[in-house]
């Protein structure tokens, strides 16, 4: 049982090493595009957080 486990362990390490040596497919966007996207998402999240703190604006004038 212990032998079987260490064999599987060794085999998995080898397969991981093989996977690590393979080239990666191209990402959907360049690094610069990704950074721009992340900044935009962060800004949007910060804006939403600010908006959440503001009181609601009534649709109609107070009576």
């Amino acid at each position: 049982m212990a032998d079987e486990q260490s064999n599987t362990e060794r085999e998995i390490r080898e397969l991981y090493r093989d996977f690590a040596s393979q080239p990666l497919p191209d990402p959907p966007e360049s690094d610069e595009e990704l950074v721009a996207l992340l900044r935009a998402r962060l800004r949007a999240q910060e804006r939403d957080a600010e908006d959440a703190c503001l009181p609601c604006i009534p649709d109609e004038p107070p009576v």
Partner: peptide
């Protein structure tokens, strides 16, 4: 610095994320 960080870590993160 953040852009340089992304360039440096992204390949490794993508590989782990795929696994």
């Amino acid at each position: 610095k953040f852009t340089r960080f992304v360039i440096s870590v992204r390949p490794g993160l993508r590989r782990s994320a795929y696994l």
